[in-house]
Design a protein around this nucleic acid. Structure first.
Length: 642
RNA sequence: GCCCACGUAACUCAGUAGGUAGAGUACUUCCUUGGUAAGGAAGAAGUCACCGGUUCGAAUCCGGUCGUGGGCUCCA
């Protein structure tokens, strides 16, 4: 066998070894004892290898330890195997195993078994995992042909593995054996189960085999694992903190919104403070749109069924629409989108190229049927208000319009404190309308606008809507769940279906291009993300209650009233707390309600004609006049800062 | 829609062999007038989600419906 040279990346030593030598052996020569003991696997370039892998070429290697992202991933992946082993141990081989990968924050494994797992099972499984981990069972890799693998899994009656094998084109596959549990797996894995020390099974869930709702529902067990117990503790702590910011919890506590059985699932009732918050957002949104040369529209909630036939919604969107309502023997349906109405307005008269681009916006409330299991607080509801707009333009205006939309989009997101988001460009799906030429042109326009704007984006091939390509911007909530807010979609379909046209400079009729876009997406979802983003402590300009005036004793009641009235007159959103309670109590309550300013009124303030301002963070400002305070509040508006 | 869990006062939760319910917070009243995160006392408040079954008797056991949560699928 040939000899190869191997060195450690960044190391000085290079050694020559015979082909077939195990990497683990080589580390004994190349690495310090300490480093070697932490080695979970070896990395060369972007390839990862087991320590038992053999040298088959010249290599420059790195040690993968638990401290690296790859190492953590490895631990989690190996934990998934360990868990599957424990499950098969406990519940017998009639429990079929499906797949068990590592995820961003842990791992899972899918099982198929008659009886459901119950929460107590998680503890039992965990206990068995600990037992197996204690034995430091090696992960033994063997490479076999597809046929050999098929025979093995057939004899073990593991149908899911056979199905996986059917999809593999290579001639050989890797099997990993831990104890008597054998799994089909690319690897690599940690050397033995002794390396798996810190893990926790977190929840049970159902999941379709291969993510397909027409295939069997499997039982998924989620868990997480870390290299260091402290990291697990931090992780659990972070989850706990995230739960405190949950918009559903804060929404109730801050009296922003409520949902009730008797009203119906996915339908939001905005309480006064939530309604005020929403109004502030809507007002700002309208102002920004006015500045960016948009015009405002209002349209109804229902329309004749025929409209939805023309628009194509009955063909392509009916499963998301509510059943027709008969009115005077004519069928009407609730709107799932606003676009057909905007087109109807477009059609009120002949349009000229001279009026383009036409930019029409509407805070339009739409109703969509969502599967019950998909509903989630404000994030996923059945009735919601889109900050919608439709732009009609000529093909040569498309790119600039997209650019302007992105500009406005980022400006609005920034206004609300969102600087981090993921941008996706979705291209032509399998089922589509419109000419190829149009698709290419529109996709290019979207791409160019993104690039001009210097935005990093990911291409989602085939994820566009049937009527055109789109740009989506997703914001992350506190639990790391990604929520799509902004969407910008080019549409060739509706102008065609409604046969809308404009007169060009050649005097001929042309078809305009239409852009749909929503920046906040839906106000409901946006506010949900906003609540979590700020943990309910909204910036002063958005806080439903900006200040609460509180007296110390009844002796200051008159002055409190005076301050309260003056601040209202100045446009400050103020409340007064003149209950017969101690100051501590009032402060605590205002604090819990996350009111940005507490105005304390005692005899001193009455005497000096001032107010003492306590901030949400516990700090005090020097005493100031009521007028100065009103000015301070006003100055917190980003508008005022420009 | 599918899988699992859950549903007790406005909120957070007890109720562990089936014998018509309990705490803390909030609410109301009274006492207390107290300078930067909970002063004290009393009171009122629940068809134990809903419907049906088993039982002498059901918050508790069984079935169904509705709703909520965690996932899957789907999406703003």
């Amino acid at each position: 066998m040939a000899d190869y040279t191997v060195s450690l990346l960044g190391g000085e030593k290079t050694i020559t070894v015979a082909g077939g030598t195990m990497l683990g052996e080589i580390l004994k020569e190349l690495a310090s004892n300490k480093a070697r003991k932490q080695a979970l696997a070896v990395k060369s370039g972007s390839d990862l290898f087991d320590l038992t892998a053999t040298v088959e070429s010249d290599l420059v290697v790195e040690i993968v330890s638990a401290a690296s992202p790859e190492g953590l991933n490895l631990i989690r992946h190996s934990c998934a195997h360990l868990m599957a082993h424990a499950v098969v141990d406990l519940f017998g081989t009639e429990t079929k195993v499906a797949i068990g990968p590592a995820t961003d924050d842990g791992f899972y494994y899918d099982f198929d078994r008659e009886a459901p797992f119950v929460p107590d099972d998680l503890e039992r499984i965990e206990a068995r995992m600990t037992e197996l981990a204690g034995k430091a069972l090696p992960f033994v890799r063997t490479t076999v042909t597809i046929d050999e693998a098929r025979q093995l899994f057939e004899s073990r009656q593991q149908g899911y593995k056979l199905e996986l094998l059917d999809g593999i084109e290579a001639e050989t596959v890797n099997l990993y054996q831990v104890g008597d549990f054998v799994d089909l797996c690319r690897g690599p894995h940690v050397p033995n189960t002794g390396f798996l020390k810190t893990y926790k099974l977190t929840r049970l869930a159902g999941a379709y085999w291969r993510g397909d709702e027409h295939r069997p529902m499997l039982q998924r067990i989620y868990g997480t694992a870390f290299g260091d117990p402290k990291e697990l503790k931090d992780y659990l702590h972070k989850l706990e903190e995230a739960r405190k910011r949950d918009h559903r919890k804060l929404g109730r506590e801050l009296e922003l919104f409520t949902m009730q059985d008797q009203v119906g699932p996915g339908l939001i009732l905005w309480q006064p403070k939530g309604a005020l918050l929403r109004k502030l957002i809507e007002d700002r949104w309208r102002e920004e749109h006015y500045r960016h040369n948009y015009e405002l529209l209002y349209t109804p909630h229902i329309a004749r069924r025929d409209l939805w036939k023309t628009s194509g919604h009955l063909d392509f969107y009916s499963e998301n629409m509510y059943s027709p309502i008969e009115i005077d023997e004519v069928s009407y349906q609730l709107k799932p989108m606003n676009c057909p109405f905007h087109i109807a307005i477009y059609n009120t008269r002949k349009r000229s190229y001279r009026e383009f681009p036409i930019r029409w916006c509407e805070l339009g409330t739409v109703y969509r049927y969502e599967k019950t299991g998909a509903l989630h607080g404000l994030m996923r509801v059945r009735g919601f208000t889109q900050d919608d707009a439709h732009i009609f333009c000529r093909p040569d205006q498309l790119e600039e319009e997209i650019f302007n939309i992105i500009d406005l989009n980022l400006q609005i997101l920034r206004l609300f404190g969102f600087e981090d988001y993921d941008v996706y460009l979705s291209t032509r799906p399998e089922k589509y309308v419109g000419s190829d030429e149009h698709w290419v042109q529109a996709t290019e326009a979207l791409k160019m606008a993104l690039e001009k704007k210097g935005l990093a984006y990911e291409v989602d091939p085939g994820e566009g809507v049937f009527y055109g390509p789109k740009i989506d911007i997703k914001i992350k909530d506190v639990l790391g769940r990604s929520w799509q807010c902004s969407t910008i979609q080019v549409d060739f379909n509706l102008p065609e279906r409604f046969e809308i046209s404009y007169t060009g400079d050649d005097g001929q009729a042309h078809q305009p291009i239409m852009i749909h876009r929503a920046l906040m997406g839906s106000l409901e979802r946006f506010i949900g993300v906003l609540i979590e983003h700020y943990a309910g402590a909204f910036p002063v300009w958005l806080a439903p209650v900006q200040a609460r005036v509180m007296n110390i004793t009844d002796a200051q009641l008159d002055y409190v009233e005076e301050v309260y009235r003056e601040l209202r007159r100045q446009g400050v959103r103020v409340e007064k707390d003149i209950r017969n309670e101690k100051l501590n109590y009032k402060i605590r309550e205002a604090q819990v309600q996350k009111v940005p300013y507490m105005l304390i009124i005692g005899d001193q303030e009455v005497a000096s004609g001032q107010v003492t301002v306590r901030l949400r963070d516990g700090k005090n400002l020097p005493p100031m006049s009521v007028v100065d305070f009103a000015e301070l509040v006003g100055s917190q508006d980003p508008e005022a800062k420009d």
